[in-house]
Structure formats: structure tokens, C-alpha cells
Amino acid sequence: MNDRYEHWQAAERLALTLIQGGLQRMAARTLAVFLFTDQESVTAGEIAGQLEASAGSVSGAIKSLLTVGLIERLPSPGSRREHYRLRDDAWATLFTGQNTVIQAMLQAAAAGIATTDEGDPAHQRLTQMHAFYDFLLGEIPALLHRWHQQTG
């Protein structure tokens, strides 16, 4: 077994884990390419070739990874192809993006609280849900600050 084969097997296992975590299949496999590449940047064509996937599916995966802030487009003077790389702050950016999910959970809990009576068990559960997400949202800035201090 050669190192390149083992390398790609590890990438595919990571992609499977990401898929189980809710990422779309092609976005997970594309992200694995970015994580495991030894190149400064990659093109959509290079990803499609490595994954043996269609240009359209890779294009959609790149678009979704750009949208959530995990990858970035690089200037590529002299090249007609777009070049992409994993952002240096990819994980903090992704986590910060989760604030929209947390806000949505807060809003959903608040809407439920407004429609239930205080003595209702649903009201109590929704109040606890709201308190948790409110707490989580308040902790994110300090958590990211500590992360940035740790990573320099």
C-alpha cells in the first residue's frame, strides 16, 4: 500500500464523517480535497479529476463551500481558471456562520413561548431552549477571542 493511496483513503473517510454530520456528499468530498492537498490552491477541474466527478457537481460544491466561508477564491494572474484554497480561518469562520442557526433557534423558541401559557410544560421546555441558545450566542465572541489568542 503506498502513501498516496493511504492519504486518499483518509480523505474519503473524513468525507464520510462530514456527510454523516450533515454536509452534502460532493461538498464533503470537495472539502476533503482542500484539506488533504499539498498544493497552494486547486482549480475546479483538478478537483473534478481527482474525485472523478462532473464539473457541474464540483462547481455546486465549491459554491456551497464559498458561501459558508470555508474556502476562498484566489487571484490567479495569467490563468483563465479560478483557483481556490481552504481559508486560514476556515473553522472559526464556519462557527461564526452558525450564529444564523442559533438566531433561528432563538426566534423559534421565542415564537413558541409566546403561544404557550406559563404553566404549560411546552412553555417550560421552550424557555429552557431559548435560555440555552441565548447563553451559547453570548459565549461565542469570548470563545473565538480565546481561539485567536491561542493560534496567534
Rank of each mutant, 00 (worst) to 15 (best):
A90D: 01
A131R: 13
D120K: 06
T37M: 07
D88H: 10
R146M: 09
R29T: 01
M105W: 07
Q98C: 13
R85I: 01
R85G: 01
E72D: 02
Q9I: 09
S76K: 07
L74P: 11
P75H: 14
A111Y: 08
M105T: 04
I113P: 01
V42F: 04
D38G: 07
R13E: 13
K63N: 12
S54Q: 13
H148F: 07
T43W: 01
Q150Y: 12
L16V: 06
L144Q: 13
R146S: 10
R4F: 12
A104P: 04
G69D: 00
T43D: 01
A131P: 00
A90S: 14
V101A: 15
W147A: 11
Y84E: 01
I19W: 05
L66P: 01
Q149S: 10
G119Q: 05
E6P: 00
A110K: 13
G21N: 11
E118L: 13
F132M: 08
L51A: 02
A32G: 05
T37F: 07
G78Y: 06
Q39G: 06
L35D: 08
Q20S: 15
T127Y: 04
T116H: 13
L70W: 07
H145E: 13
H123P: 00
K63Y: 10
E40G: 02
E12R: 15
W91M: 15
P77D: 09
D88I: 11
N2V: 05
D89E: 15
A15V: 00
E72W: 04
T30D: 05
G138V: 02
E46R: 15
H123T: 02
Q103Y: 05
Q50C: 11
H145K: 11
M105L: 15
T93C: 10
N99F: 05
G69H: 00
Q9D: 08
T100P: 01
L51W: 05
R73C: 08
P121M: 01
D3T: 11
W91Y: 14
A53S: 14
G112Q: 08
Y5G: 03
G22A: 06
T37I: 03
G78W: 00
D120I: 05
R85Q: 12
V101M: 14
D88R: 11
T17M: 08
A92R: 09
R25G: 06
Y84R: 02
A32V: 10
T43K: 06
A90F: 09
L65A: 04
M1C: 06
V33F: 00
E82Q: 14
Q150W: 12
L65F: 01
D117T: 12
A28W: 00
M1S: 12
L126N: 02
L86V: 04
L31K: 08
Y84G: 00
F34Y: 13
T43R: 07
T67L: 11
G112P: 01
V68P: 00
M26A: 07
T67S: 14
L137A: 14
I140V: 15
M1W: 03
E6H: 11
A109R: 03
A27T: 06
L136R: 14
L14T: 06
V58R: 04
M1F: 06
L65S: 04
L94E: 02
P141A: 11
H145R: 11
W91N: 07
T17F: 09
G152F: 02
E139N: 05
A53G: 02
Q149H: 10
A61N: 09
L126S: 03
R81W: 02
A27G: 02
F95V: 14
H123G: 00
